[in-house]
Amino acid sequence: MLELRLVQGSLLKKVLEAIKDLVTDANFDCSATGFSLQAMDSSHVALVSLLLRSEGFEHYRCDRNISMGMNLNNMAKMLKCAGNDDIITLKADDGSDTVTFMFESPTQDKISDFEMKLMDVDSEHLGIPEAEYHAIVRMPSTEFARICKDLSSIGDTVVISVTKEGVKFSTSGDIGTANVVCRQNTTVDKPEDATIVEMNEPVSLTFALRYFNSFTKGTPLSNTVTISLSSELPVVVEYKIAEMGHLRFYLAPKIEE
């Protein structure tokens, strides 16, 4: 028996909107730790990792570890039927091939339930060890999304370079080149507006912008985004989900052929 009650149901709606274009089908894993997902895009180039910790749910019952295969587009269709202020409860019986989403309006005057068929999803799980990164950049998530969108109108790839001066995003294409430099800026009124650059050593890596633009669909989840870079590792683009966990995207840097 599985029963997860999420008072801030909009979080789950935002998570689905953030990942449904990158991943088609995925297994949601439920354990005592929480509700999680790890899935790669169809080309196995980008990976999404979601964790919603059990403590973040108002009610969390998961009698045994369970993996539920879902089509994310279909799940997003169902969650779109929930209001932004609704409480969302996920329910599944042991051995059932369906999951039920229950939506309660804040005043309890409207209660809906939607039952969705589960599916067998054959997925490859990767072990991602904790790593020390050469540089970690924290910046407003809307600023990062703006930069990725702007640069993708000029070129297909972005070079992210971190030095002690700050972080530089560069691209080039048929019509010209573009460079955006964000300097460390901690003298802001609100902490979420700060740009913080932690650098152990300078790093410069090239990434496909179309994946970055996909990752920025996570922007509504958090005011800030953290970009962790190392020369021998995939970049990690992380959106913290307040008091619950995180949505992380991984992408290997492009390399010379």
Binding site: V45, L47, E124, H125, L126, G127, K254, I255, E257
Partner: peptide, 14 residues
């Protein structure tokens, strides 16, 4: 534009 490696080139399957 460079070669795009697969993630399993970096992480092991579990």
């Amino acid at each position: 534009e460079g070669f795009q490696p697969l993630l399993k080139n970096y992480y092991n399957s579990i």
